Simulated scan of single mutants.
Amino acid sequence: MINAYAAFEAKGQLKEYSYEPGSLNHHDVEIEVDYCGICHSDISMLNNEWGMSQYPLVAGHEVVGRVSAIGEHVTSVSVGDLVGLGWHSDYCHHCHSCNTGDENLCQQAMPTVMSKGGFADKVRANERAVVALPKHLNAQTAGPLFCGGITVFNPLVQFDVKPTDKVAVIGIGGLGHLALQFLNAWGCEVTAFTSSDAKAQEALKLGAHHTLNSRNQADIENAAERFDFIISTVNVKLDWNLYLSTLKPKGRLHFVGATLEPLDIGVFGLIAGQKQISGSPVGSPATIAQMLEFAAQHNIEPQVELFKMSEINQAIKHLESGKAHYRIVLERE
């Protein structure tokens, strides 16, 4: 029996919920959850904002814990190993993406939050989606790396961001505060776009070399053709043409924040500078493992606030209030 906290309707309070998971599949891993982060994507699923939630819904996809059982054909981990689990709990295993190391792009991939996730004492996933933690990584704070961390790390690998590049980050929050740390350790010259004086000071401590006021059009105009790469972590509409003007020729504006409104982009600015616009999701298991090693080597750590698992409803309210600093992690009692 697995004991969890589930939503039984959109925007409803999470309640205690127990379910029988059945026999462990041959290639599945059962993880005893020690910590689980709460992500805005969890809230979107709990509230059915994307129209695909099925209730009762057990969310939670930033899991860190010990392997408690393995299927008879599992070879990648052993019982007792400290591991993590992110947005995907399984893949189709036979499409082109799965066969070429891009499992995160598998169109049949199973989100962890749709297969009963980590707001529970245990969670199950295919071994391919489970990644071991490096020895020197802090298990208490590592959970958000499996979603927020890999979301901002993946573009560095996919688009061959170079240590000599000048890179800007839009938005210093749950994603942005990790992007600053990764980019600084990557060797880039890092600029933070932020509208808050307090966050500007913190951005410098997190790894930014410079800050720009995102509400000051003159500041942004003065940064014309400065950046090789801009990563946007926000989910609000901005003047994207203004930000594009700060890119060097052949520069890239990359989205990891889910901006819901259509992008209003003037095509001539793209053509004249041969500029690019792109987006990406979380990374493959191999890229997650690479990110974890990089984080361990460079002492990169999410800034988290801890709540007990039984305080899950209070923790969700705190995240929804916008006051979280910067990620929330639930600790199993």
Rank of each mutant, 00 (worst) to 15 (best):
A7V: 03
F8W: 01
E9N: 15
A10C: 09
A10S: 09
L24N: 07
N25A: 13
V33W: 04
Y35Q: 02
G37H: 00
M45I: 13
N47P: 08
N48K: 04
N48E: 08
Y55E: 14
L57F: 07
G65T: 06
T75W: 01
S76D: 14
V77T: 13
G86I: 05
H88G: 01
C92S: 13
N104A: 15
C106K: 01
Q108E: 14
M114H: 14
A120K: 08
D121M: 06
A125R: 06
N126W: 03
A129P: 06
A132P: 14
P134Y: 10
P134W: 12
C147I: 04
I150H: 04
I172K: 13
I172W: 10
Q181T: 11
A185E: 11
T191D: 12
T191H: 07
A200V: 08
E202S: 07
L212M: 11
N216C: 11
Q217I: 10
N222T: 01
A223C: 00
A223G: 04
V234K: 01
V236P: 09
W240I: 07
L242I: 04
L242V: 02
K250G: 05
K250A: 12
L260S: 14
G266V: 07
V267P: 04
G269E: 08
K275E: 07
K275C: 02
Q276Y: 09
S278M: 02
V282R: 06
G283N: 09
T287Q: 13
A289E: 14
M291C: 09
Q303H: 10
V304D: 12
A315H: 05
E320S: 07
V329F: 11
V329W: 07
E331P: 00
R332M: 09
E333S: 08
E333W: 05
